[in-house]
Write a protein that binds this DNA or RNA. Structure first.
Lengths: 101, 101
DNA sequence: CATGTGCGTAAGCCATTACTTACCGTAAGT
DNA sequence: ACTTACGGTAAGTAATGGCTTACGCACATG
């Protein structure tokens, strides 16, 4: 299996922190690590997971590896959650009609 | 911390499997466990995590505990992801304008 | 060609956690 | 009251995984 699902990748707080940094714009690995209380290799490993999940994308500028949020992986997670939305609302409606029990 | 974020709760494959079963409609604990390759106590523990994350809700019918997907937790995850959507599209646009590199 | 910079990978350690079985509590039926 | 049904909890174990340091590779610069 190994992180097939994007939600596996987002299930770690540090990884979400990396993702939230990239949300502000593309960053090199070292820059990301400088903003976090973990080492650069740790960030590198997290980025690999995020990349395998399709959540970030990489490009190279000389020796620097620039990462950026990828829309595709985000869209995948979104559509996954959308599938729950309709049934969830139905449930909520029935729940309310029972009087909130 | 311990599963403060709903995405932490959704970061486990078995827990997502539980959630996907509940997506089809409310179920008792034993019913859920019967659909999965893990024991009933394991399901019970996963349901507790999902419940603490606000992703599922519980009601009782006699000795049966009926679980159902909760809209609130789902909405939380959705709004979290929505925050990435706009910036992600901007990034994608810039990416395309660079020629897809 | 040598040095410096920026990252990824390997190996190992430690904490987290997902799972099991055993047990206990509660509700309903006989 | 006894029994059965249904689930949560406790305790212990095995595995996952997140982190570190050490190392190696690619690119740029003197």
């Amino acid at each position: 299996m190994a992180y097939a699902h994007a939600l596996d990748a987002l299930g770690d707080p540090t990884r979400r922190a990396v993702w939230e940094i990239l949300r502000k714009g593309p960053r090199a690995v070292g820059e990301i690590a400088a903003s976090l209380p973990v080492s650069r290799p740790a960030v590198s490993q997290h980025l690999r997971v995020l990349r395998d999940a399709g959540l970030v994308r990489e490009r190279r500028e000389g020796t620097r590896h620039i990462y950026a949020v990828s829309p595709e992986g985000l869209a995948e997670v979104r559509s996954y959650l959308e599938g729950f939305w309709a049934t969830s609302l139905d449930e909520f409606k029935a729940y309310a009609e029972r009087g909130g029990q």
